[in-house]
Computed example of a mutant assay.
Amino acid sequence: MNEASRPVPRNPSTAPVSLLVDCDTGIDDALALAYLAGQRHVELVAVTATPGNVDADQVARNTLAVLELCGRGDVPVAIGARRPLEVPLVTTPETHGPQGIGYAELPPPRRAPEERDAVGLWIDAARARPGELTALVTAPLTNFALALRAEPRLPELFAGVVLMGGAYNHQGNTTPTAEWNTHVDPHAAAEVFAAFAGQPVDRLPIVCALETTERIEMRPEHVAALAAAAGCAEPELLRPEDPEGTRSRASRPLVRHVSDMLRFYFEFHRLYDQGYVAHIHDVFAAAVAAGTARCATRAASVHVETAPGRLRGTTVADFRGLWGEPPSARIVSANHPAEVFSDVVRSLGALAAARG
């Protein structure tokens, strides 16, 4: 094992951080946005929409609605690409619901998306604040790839980059070998990793892949703890024996909507024999970007398979330097789910209580 591939620990911090977020707001993206809205040390500079779980327009509507629900209607939201770079768009109504947010019925957003394009927004923000902004992408990497085409200096302009995607030493969740985000737009993922190859190790993107994000397994008891932390009038019980589609009656609107999102996600995971649980991948990536999650990373050169066939979207990491190529990512190799959930319950509970 070379020095770059050794696990490097990252300890939690509440130092101020300014985030540019790109998402395809499904259930776990929505929870990630709510989590970030409850972090006082986090500045949400802008949130941009990439098609994935739903189409780009629905992503923007969901994003605006979630931000307004969390009292962050001031955050700019912009739409970028409307399809992957080279392959047709595939969405996931079976996973996240027709609107992308499960059973939740959020109030329609009062604002419309920004008129400006998401890619231009990212580039202008990075140029205006060099070395200050961290990019968090919980979606397919389409917008990020387009931004890198237009401004190849982004790896030097960003303070850091955190990505949710890929599966390296783990079964895929879309095909046997591919994770959802990289499968939706493998060409964009390949371009992003190529753009970072050869950067100093501390500037490589931190990648939260399935081997660690599927450990962030939310259960009904976490929802009950969230409701208690929010001061809900009654216990919030999501029981496997409840009829499918049962709606929450929680007295706190944020808890009620989160519960309705998660019930759909629990039912989906159960349908695929994973239990009455929900893998909230994007919340972990958000916590890493916010600096609040303790984890370890290993540097590697990443290959993304783009050729048609069964392996399209598969990600392969060379931790040992066998390809003779410089690292292009730091892949999270260890995390601490109990700590993440403790923070999520505290943060979302406090935000829900404050919102009334």
Rank of each mutant, 00 (worst) to 15 (best):
I123R: 09
L19I: 09
L154G: 05
P16D: 11
V162N: 10
T306F: 01
T182H: 11
D55G: 06
R270P: 09
A289G: 08
R294C: 03
P16E: 13
E105K: 12
W323P: 12
Y168P: 05
Q39F: 01
V344P: 00
P113D: 11
V77L: 09
Y35C: 03
V201M: 02
D242N: 12
S5P: 01
G71W: 02
V184Y: 01
H96V: 14
L141T: 01
V137N: 08
V66K: 08
V21Q: 11
S13R: 04
D343V: 01
N181T: 15
S13I: 05
A233H: 04
P93H: 05
P155A: 05
R111A: 14
C208E: 05
P205Q: 04
A286E: 06
G160L: 05
I27R: 08
A354C: 04
L121R: 09
L163N: 03
V192K: 10
V316L: 12
T14I: 00
G52L: 05
P76N: 04
R312I: 08
P84E: 06
L210Y: 02
G165Y: 11
F144L: 11
R83V: 00
H269E: 14
D124A: 15
R203W: 06
N173R: 13
A353M: 00
F144D: 03
E267P: 13
L121N: 00
S5H: 08
T306H: 06
L33R: 11
P326V: 05
V255K: 12
T182M: 04
P7V: 06
Q274N: 13
